[in-house]
Nucleic acid binder design. Structure first.
Length: 510
RNA sequence: GGCUCGGUAGCUCAGCGGUAGAGCGGGGGACUCAUAAGCCCUAGGUCGUAGGUUCAAAUCCUACCCGAGUCACCA
């Protein structure tokens, strides 16, 4: 861990959309990374909503509300998603907040002062739905070429501000070449390199045909994407930085969906450079969650509803599934059946049952009191586990982090079968029995701490059953030392951590 | 169509120049502390196809087939 602060963000979510499992996925990923980082030093996480743009203005009008009233009514839904998935952010930014407008205008002015912003007339065919200008050649029968849109386009002639993005191509190429980890995974990196090698066009960064956006001096508003990106630094208090947050936490790490890699790795760094600031430290573009191998869509009727999912399986089980099922970064499929199987097998059988059988034996043989270990232990094999988990998580190898943690789960289960506490008890070999029982409790304490970022609620319940005070949200370097668990601790077994789930009636069994 | 990524045991994936691996599922076994959980044993898969380079190729090169993505401002 570097001494400076660790800063990690989700994309800001377009407020008029419907929260779905992909949003939860981004948020949980950032939450896991941030909780792990906090266990080692100063860390901040950020999420929020993107509230400007013509689409929002039109939706508001259709709903008979002012844009501001409209977005105010929608914002709580996005906070609810955070609650449903137990994600905890240090800040939640809305692009309609004054602090964001201030930062956006300041950035715009700095870019202009540096000569990277110029005024020009933009004429062309414009699709309101996509908020995009299309070249004549792309139109299909005079309509928007986006297959999911296909609405009629209109001829617009606007005097707008443009950003000299083309001037930053060489610098971007250098960034990509000198830091191959700047954008991951590799496939996204390759794609952006291809775009760079093809050259960049200047970018229109204001709109004058509608007014729902951050107003510019002299008329017009900032283009929604331009202001959206700035959220990452406006939330840190830039440019005034009264609390020193920007100085401490920027540059940060952005977790995004793969479809917006271009904005985050080409446009955003160039904007920052133009204003004399550092580009983000790293961008991780994750894949999509598919339903049975297909993209979720309303027309296919296969949309997985995030609130119902968390309700049925529990936030922690879904969180676990999302990051155990596939390497972070790739597309993968989700289904209720797969989720149930993971829950029963990994969480119920391996982990939940380990806690239960361990505490049951402690109860039976030692009245639930953690014994004094006087014989050998399994400590040698696990000493470097926390560092391995930390390295994986902070490098966004979230699946590998869980794999490592599960090695300890397996080690503890195996150790029970090998050392056979029931035989030790019958034979009156008290020291050896104490050693086994201590190892189990201490191992479970470790698991509680290591799993806290992934499954905060269940990890806390483990902690409670182990009879520990406080929560498993502790500094890893201090607490993950074998033997810190105090002898004499009174444990408090409870209900099964992950009760077995029976198949749903409509579920097809494999 | 250009470009990118992938095609390895039933499923999900790791390996990426040196005698084919893991988890899950399936099959078998010994136990009993436990959520009929856990533990041990068990997969003989022409590593998409066809060529090539090499003493040696899932592992490098070429062509092709299949799937996905991107080029088109939805996590």
């Amino acid at each position: 861990m570097p001494a400076r602060g660790f800063y990690v963000t989700t994309p800001i979510y377009y407020i008029s959309g419907t929260p779905h499992i992909g949003h939860a996925y981004s948020s949980v990923a950032v939450d896991i990374i941030a909780r792990t980082a906090r266990a080692h030093g100063p860390a901040r996480s950020l999420t929020g909503t993107d509230e400007h743009g013509q689409k929002v203005a039109q939706a508001a009008e259709a709903a008979g509300a002012t844009p501001q009233a409209y977005v105010d009514a929608l914002a709580p839904r996005w906070r609810e998603l955070q609650i449903a998935y137990d994600t905890r952010f240090d800040d939640f930014i809305r692009t309609t907040e004054p602090r964001h407008a201030r930062a956006s205008l300041a950035l715009f002015e700095r870019m202009r002062a540096n000569g990277d912003v110029y005024e020009s007339v933009y004429e062309g065919w414009y699709c309101t739905n996509d908020e995009t200008f299309w070249p004549e050649s792309k139109l299909i029968d005079g309509r928007c070429p986006n297959p999911e849109c296909r609405r009629p386009v209109e001829w617009l002639s606007e005097r707008n501000w443009f950003f000299r993005l083309s001037a930053y191509r060489d610098r971007l190429l250098e960034l990509f070449r000198t830091d191959p980890d700047f954008l991951r995974p590799q496939s996204r990196y390759n794609e952006m390199m291809a775009v760079l090698e093809g050259g960049l066009d200047d970018l229109s960064i204001s709109r004058s045909s509608f007014d729902w956006g951050i107003p510019l001096p002299g008329g017009g508003v900032l283009y929604v994407w331009f202001d959206a990106l700035i959220n990452y630094i406006s939330a840190l208090g830039w440019p005034d930085d009264p609390d020193g947050r920007f100085a401490t936490f920027w540059p940060g790490v952005h977790v995004i969906g793969k479809e917006i890699a271009r904005f985050h790795t080409l446009i955003w760094p160039a904007m920052l450079w133009s204003a004399g600031l550092e580009p983000p430290a790293r961008v991780f573009a994750h894949g999509w969650i598919l339903a049975e191998g297909e993209k979720m869509s309303k027309s296919l009727g296969n949309v997985i509803e995030p609130f119902a999912l968390a309700e049925r399986f529990g936030a922690d089980a879904v969180r676990y599934f999302l990051f155990r099922e596939a390497p972070f970064g790739t597309d993968f499929s989700i289904s209720r059946e797969k989720l149930r199987q993971r829950l029963n097998s990994d969480l119920g059988n391996d982990l939940g049952n380990l806690l239960r059988r361990s505490l049951a034996m402690l109860d039976r043989y030692r009245d639930g009191l953690v014994p004094e270990p006087t014989a050998g232990s399994i400590a040698e094999g696990v000493s470097d586990l926390p560092a391995r988990v930390r390295d994986h998580v902070l490098a966004m190898r979230l699946r590998e982090g869980l794999d490592e943690i599960w090695n300890l789960v397996t080690t503890l289960n195996r150790s029970i079968d090998e050392r056979k506490p029931w035989e030790l008890a019958k034979a009156g070999r008290g020291d050896e029995l104490d050693a086994v029982l201590y190892d189990l409790c201490e191992g479970l304490r470790w698991l509680s701490i290591l799993l806290f970022p992934y499954m905060p609620s269940k990890a806390t319940e483990m902690w409670r059953q182990l009879g520990l005070s406080g929560t498993p949200e502790v500094r890893w370097p201090d607490e993950l030392t074998w033997g810190r668990l105090a002898a004499g601790t009174q444990t408090d077994p409870g209900l099964p951590l992950f009760p077995r789930l029976e198949p749903e009636p409509d579920e097809t069994e494999a």
